[in-house]
Protein backbone atom coordinates (compact mmCIF):
# COMPACT_ATOMS: atom_id res chain seq x y z
CA UNK A 1 0.00 0.00 0.00
CA UNK A 2 1.05 3.59 -0.58
CA UNK A 3 2.07 5.16 2.70
CA UNK A 4 3.40 8.48 1.59
CA UNK A 5 2.78 12.09 2.32
CA UNK A 6 -0.27 13.06 0.25
CA UNK A 7 0.10 16.80 0.85
CA UNK A 8 3.76 16.76 -0.15
CA UNK A 9 2.88 14.81 -3.28
CA UNK A 10 0.10 17.25 -4.14
CA UNK A 11 2.55 20.12 -3.67
CA UNK A 12 5.02 18.46 -6.05
CA UNK A 13 2.41 17.71 -8.70
CA UNK A 14 1.14 21.30 -8.70
CA UNK A 15 4.70 22.57 -8.90
CA UNK A 16 5.34 20.27 -11.86
CA UNK A 17 2.29 21.61 -13.73
CA UNK A 18 3.32 25.15 -13.02
CA UNK A 19 6.93 24.67 -14.09
CA UNK A 20 6.08 22.86 -17.29
CA UNK A 21 3.50 25.44 -18.25
CA UNK A 22 5.65 28.50 -17.65
CA UNK A 23 9.06 27.17 -18.63
CA UNK A 24 8.05 26.90 -22.25
CA UNK A 25 6.68 30.43 -22.43
CA UNK A 26 9.10 33.26 -22.89
CA UNK A 27 6.55 35.77 -21.66
CA UNK A 28 5.36 33.61 -18.75
CA UNK A 29 2.70 35.26 -16.68
CA UNK A 30 1.83 37.65 -19.50
CA UNK A 31 -0.04 34.85 -21.29
CA UNK A 32 -2.27 34.35 -18.27
CA UNK A 33 -3.34 37.96 -18.59
CA UNK A 34 -3.61 38.22 -22.34
CA UNK A 35 -6.54 35.85 -22.85
CA UNK A 36 -8.99 37.51 -20.41
CA UNK A 37 -7.92 40.97 -21.60
CA UNK A 38 -8.56 40.12 -25.24
CA UNK A 39 -11.92 38.55 -24.38
CA UNK A 40 -12.79 41.59 -22.30
CA UNK A 41 -11.93 43.89 -25.20
CA UNK A 42 -13.91 41.91 -27.77
CA UNK A 43 -17.02 41.48 -25.63
CA UNK A 44 -16.95 45.12 -24.60
CA UNK A 45 -16.73 46.16 -28.25
CA UNK A 46 -19.58 43.85 -29.30
CA UNK A 47 -21.96 44.79 -26.50
CA UNK A 48 -21.30 48.52 -26.40
CA UNK A 49 -20.71 49.26 -30.10
CA UNK A 50 -22.43 46.51 -32.11
CA UNK A 51 -25.38 45.62 -29.84
CA UNK A 52 -25.64 48.57 -27.46
CA UNK A 53 -27.89 47.54 -24.61
CA UNK A 54 -29.39 48.63 -21.30
CA UNK A 55 -26.74 49.99 -19.00
CA UNK A 56 -25.16 47.75 -16.41
CA UNK A 57 -23.74 48.64 -13.04
CA UNK A 58 -20.31 50.10 -13.49
CA UNK A 59 -18.12 50.07 -16.57
CA UNK A 60 -18.99 47.26 -18.97
CA UNK A 61 -15.36 46.13 -19.25
CA UNK A 62 -15.21 45.30 -15.53
CA UNK A 63 -18.71 43.89 -15.60
CA UNK A 64 -17.74 41.43 -18.32
CA UNK A 65 -14.38 40.59 -16.73
CA UNK A 66 -16.26 39.52 -13.57
CA UNK A 67 -17.88 36.94 -15.83
CA UNK A 68 -14.91 35.90 -17.95
CA UNK A 69 -12.50 35.04 -15.13
CA UNK A 70 -14.71 32.60 -13.17
CA UNK A 71 -16.01 31.06 -16.38
CA UNK A 72 -12.57 30.61 -17.94
CA UNK A 73 -11.24 29.04 -14.77
CA UNK A 74 -14.16 26.65 -14.62
CA UNK A 75 -13.94 25.67 -18.29
CA UNK A 76 -10.18 25.19 -18.30
CA UNK A 77 -9.95 23.37 -14.97
CA UNK A 78 -12.91 21.14 -15.77
CA UNK A 79 -11.61 20.06 -19.18
CA UNK A 80 -8.02 19.55 -18.03
CA UNK A 81 -9.15 17.59 -14.94
CA UNK A 82 -11.38 15.40 -17.11
CA UNK A 83 -8.47 14.09 -19.15
CA UNK A 84 -6.03 13.96 -16.21
CA UNK A 85 -6.37 10.28 -15.30
CA UNK A 86 -6.21 9.01 -18.87
CA UNK A 87 -3.31 11.31 -19.75
CA UNK A 88 -1.36 10.29 -16.65
CA UNK A 89 -1.81 6.59 -17.28
CA UNK A 90 1.86 5.90 -16.51
CA UNK A 91 1.36 7.24 -12.99
CA UNK A 92 -1.97 5.59 -12.35
CA UNK A 93 -0.88 2.17 -13.61
CA UNK A 94 2.60 2.11 -12.10
CA UNK A 95 2.48 3.84 -8.74
CA UNK A 96 -0.16 3.17 -6.12
CA UNK A 97 -0.69 6.81 -5.15
CA UNK A 98 -4.21 7.78 -4.04
CA UNK A 99 -5.68 8.48 -7.45
CA UNK A 100 -7.85 11.37 -6.26
CA UNK A 101 -4.65 13.40 -6.11
CA UNK A 102 -4.28 13.47 -9.91
CA UNK A 103 -7.43 15.45 -10.90
CA UNK A 104 -7.28 17.56 -7.72
CA UNK A 105 -3.69 18.60 -8.48
CA UNK A 106 -4.75 19.66 -11.98
CA UNK A 107 -7.56 21.84 -10.62
CA UNK A 108 -5.31 23.38 -7.99
CA UNK A 109 -2.59 23.87 -10.62
CA UNK A 110 -5.05 26.02 -12.56
CA UNK A 111 -5.50 28.14 -9.45
CA UNK A 112 -2.05 29.66 -9.97
CA UNK A 113 -3.34 30.95 -13.27
CA UNK A 114 -6.56 32.05 -11.58
CA UNK A 115 -4.72 33.96 -8.85
CA UNK A 116 -2.94 36.07 -11.47
CA UNK A 117 -6.23 36.84 -13.21
CA UNK A 118 -7.97 37.76 -9.95
CA UNK A 119 -5.14 40.18 -9.24
CA UNK A 120 -5.74 41.71 -12.67
CA UNK A 121 -9.47 42.02 -11.98
CA UNK A 122 -8.96 43.71 -8.61
CA UNK A 123 -6.40 46.05 -10.11
CA UNK A 124 -8.78 47.08 -12.90
CA UNK A 125 -11.60 47.59 -10.40
CA UNK A 126 -9.39 50.11 -8.63
CA UNK A 127 -8.17 51.69 -11.89
CA UNK A 128 -11.78 52.23 -12.99
CA UNK A 129 -12.38 54.08 -9.74
CA UNK A 130 -14.58 51.56 -7.96
CA UNK A 131 -12.27 51.36 -4.96
CA UNK A 132 -11.83 48.83 -2.19
CA UNK A 133 -14.69 48.11 0.20
CA UNK A 134 -15.13 46.00 3.31
CA UNK A 135 -17.19 43.40 1.47
CA UNK A 136 -14.03 42.28 -0.35
CA UNK A 137 -13.55 40.08 2.72
CA UNK A 138 -16.14 37.75 1.19
CA UNK A 139 -13.97 37.15 -1.89
CA UNK A 140 -11.71 34.39 -0.49
CA UNK A 141 -14.74 32.41 0.67
CA UNK A 142 -16.61 32.56 -2.65
CA UNK A 143 -13.49 31.66 -4.63
CA UNK A 144 -12.79 28.69 -2.34
CA UNK A 145 -16.36 27.54 -2.95
CA UNK A 146 -15.85 27.67 -6.72
CA UNK A 147 -12.58 25.73 -6.44
CA UNK A 148 -14.35 23.10 -4.31
CA UNK A 149 -17.08 22.85 -6.93
CA UNK A 150 -14.59 22.39 -9.76
CA UNK A 151 -12.69 19.76 -7.73
CA UNK A 152 -15.91 17.79 -7.33
CA UNK A 153 -16.86 18.02 -11.00
CA UNK A 154 -13.26 17.30 -12.04
CA UNK A 155 -13.08 14.16 -9.88
CA UNK A 156 -16.30 12.78 -11.30
CA UNK A 157 -15.50 13.48 -14.95
CA UNK A 158 -11.90 12.28 -14.76
CA UNK A 159 -13.24 8.92 -13.56
CA UNK A 160 -15.95 8.82 -16.24
CA UNK A 161 -13.37 9.59 -18.93
CA UNK A 162 -11.57 6.33 -18.07
CA UNK A 163 -14.67 4.31 -18.97
CA UNK A 164 -16.03 6.44 -21.80
CA UNK A 165 -13.17 8.08 -23.64
CA UNK A 166 -15.29 10.58 -25.52
CA UNK A 167 -16.26 12.23 -22.24
CA UNK A 168 -13.68 14.92 -23.06
CA UNK A 169 -15.68 15.95 -26.13
CA UNK A 170 -18.86 16.06 -24.08
CA UNK A 171 -17.08 18.44 -21.70
CA UNK A 172 -15.82 20.63 -24.55
CA UNK A 173 -19.30 20.97 -26.01
CA UNK A 174 -20.81 21.60 -22.58
CA UNK A 175 -18.34 24.43 -22.05
CA UNK A 176 -19.31 26.09 -25.32
CA UNK A 177 -22.98 25.94 -24.36
CA UNK A 178 -22.36 27.07 -20.79
CA UNK A 179 -20.65 30.26 -21.94
CA UNK A 180 -24.09 31.46 -23.08
CA UNK A 181 -26.04 30.07 -20.13
CA UNK A 182 -23.82 31.73 -17.55
CA UNK A 183 -24.29 35.51 -17.25
CA UNK A 184 -20.86 36.40 -18.61
CA UNK A 185 -21.95 39.37 -20.73
CA UNK A 186 -25.52 40.04 -19.55
CA UNK A 187 -26.95 40.93 -16.14
CA UNK A 188 -29.35 38.64 -14.31
CA UNK A 189 -32.00 41.38 -14.58
CA UNK A 190 -32.25 40.64 -18.33
CA UNK A 191 -33.36 37.11 -17.51
CA UNK A 192 -37.04 36.39 -16.83
CA UNK A 193 -37.57 35.89 -13.05
CA UNK A 194 -38.94 32.35 -13.45
CA UNK A 195 -35.50 31.26 -14.74
CA UNK A 196 -33.53 32.90 -11.93
CA UNK A 197 -33.35 29.73 -9.84
CA UNK A 198 -31.30 28.06 -12.61
CA UNK A 199 -28.69 30.77 -12.22
CA UNK A 200 -28.68 30.70 -8.46
CA UNK A 201 -28.16 26.95 -8.29
CA UNK A 202 -25.39 27.08 -10.88
CA UNK A 203 -22.28 27.85 -8.81
CA UNK A 204 -20.46 29.54 -11.68
CA UNK A 205 -23.38 31.87 -12.37
CA UNK A 206 -23.87 32.47 -8.66
CA UNK A 207 -20.20 33.35 -8.24
CA UNK A 208 -20.37 35.86 -11.09
CA UNK A 209 -23.43 37.50 -9.52
CA UNK A 210 -21.74 37.64 -6.12
CA UNK A 211 -18.57 39.13 -7.61
CA UNK A 212 -20.53 41.90 -9.31
CA UNK A 213 -22.46 42.69 -6.15
CA UNK A 214 -19.24 43.00 -4.17
CA UNK A 215 -16.95 44.69 -6.70
CA UNK A 216 -19.33 46.90 -8.67
CA UNK A 217 -22.19 47.65 -6.29
CA UNK A 218 -20.03 47.61 -3.13
CA UNK A 219 -22.75 45.64 -1.34
CA UNK A 220 -22.52 42.42 0.67
CA UNK A 221 -23.52 39.32 -1.33
CA UNK A 222 -27.19 38.32 -1.20
CA UNK A 223 -27.50 35.76 1.61
CA UNK A 224 -29.76 33.36 -0.28
CA UNK A 225 -27.40 33.28 -3.29
CA UNK A 226 -24.46 32.67 -0.99
CA UNK A 227 -26.22 29.78 0.75
CA UNK A 228 -27.14 28.16 -2.57
CA UNK A 229 -23.59 28.63 -3.85
CA UNK A 230 -22.21 26.96 -0.74
CA UNK A 231 -24.76 24.17 -0.90
CA UNK A 232 -24.17 23.24 -4.54
CA UNK A 233 -20.38 23.49 -4.20
CA UNK A 234 -20.19 21.23 -1.16
CA UNK A 235 -22.72 18.85 -2.70
CA UNK A 236 -20.67 18.63 -5.94
CA UNK A 237 -17.49 17.98 -3.99
CA UNK A 238 -19.05 15.15 -1.97
CA UNK A 239 -20.74 13.64 -5.02
CA UNK A 240 -17.53 13.82 -7.06
CA UNK A 241 -15.51 12.22 -4.28
CA UNK A 242 -17.97 9.36 -3.74
CA UNK A 243 -18.37 8.80 -7.49
CA UNK A 244 -14.61 8.73 -7.96
CA UNK A 245 -14.15 6.22 -5.15
CA UNK A 246 -16.70 3.90 -6.72
CA UNK A 247 -15.32 4.19 -10.23
CA UNK A 248 -11.62 4.00 -9.40
CA UNK A 249 -11.79 0.31 -8.46
CA UNK A 250 -11.74 -0.77 -12.07
CA UNK A 251 -9.39 1.91 -13.44
CA UNK A 252 -6.58 -0.61 -13.87
CA UNK A 253 -8.75 -2.80 -16.10
CA UNK A 254 -9.86 0.04 -18.35
CA UNK A 255 -6.60 1.93 -18.73
Amino acid sequence: MWRGDAIYLLHNLILKDFRIRYRNMSLGVFWSLLNPLVMMGVLTFVFTQVFPRASTDGPFAIFVLCGIIPFNFFALAWSSATVSIVDNVTLVKRVSIPREIVPVSVVLGNCVHLGIQIALLLLLVIVFGKGVNVHWLWLPLVWVLEIAFVCGVGLLFSALDVYVRDMRYVVESANTVLFWLVPVFYPLSSVRPEFHFVYEYNPIAALILVLRTILLEAKPPVASTLVKLAFTSVFALILGYIGFRMLKRRFYDYL
Binding site: G4, D5, Y8, L9, N12, L15, K16, R19, I20
Partner: peptide, 18 residues
Protein backbone atom coordinates in the same frame (compact mmCIF):
# COMPACT_ATOMS: atom_id res chain seq x y z
CA UNK B 1 11.17 19.49 -19.25
CA UNK B 2 11.95 19.28 -15.54
CA UNK B 3 15.51 19.26 -14.26
CA UNK B 4 17.02 16.18 -12.65
CA UNK B 5 16.56 17.79 -9.24
CA UNK B 6 12.87 18.55 -9.82
CA UNK B 7 12.30 15.03 -11.11
CA UNK B 8 13.95 13.53 -8.02
CA UNK B 9 11.62 15.53 -5.76
CA UNK B 10 8.55 14.58 -7.78
CA UNK B 11 9.42 10.90 -8.06
CA UNK B 12 10.35 10.66 -4.39
CA UNK B 13 6.95 12.06 -3.46
CA UNK B 14 5.24 9.65 -5.86
CA UNK B 15 7.02 6.72 -4.24
CA UNK B 16 5.95 7.94 -0.81
CA UNK B 17 8.78 10.04 0.62
CA UNK B 18 7.76 12.83 2.95
Amino acid sequence: DLTGRENVYLNGALLGLS
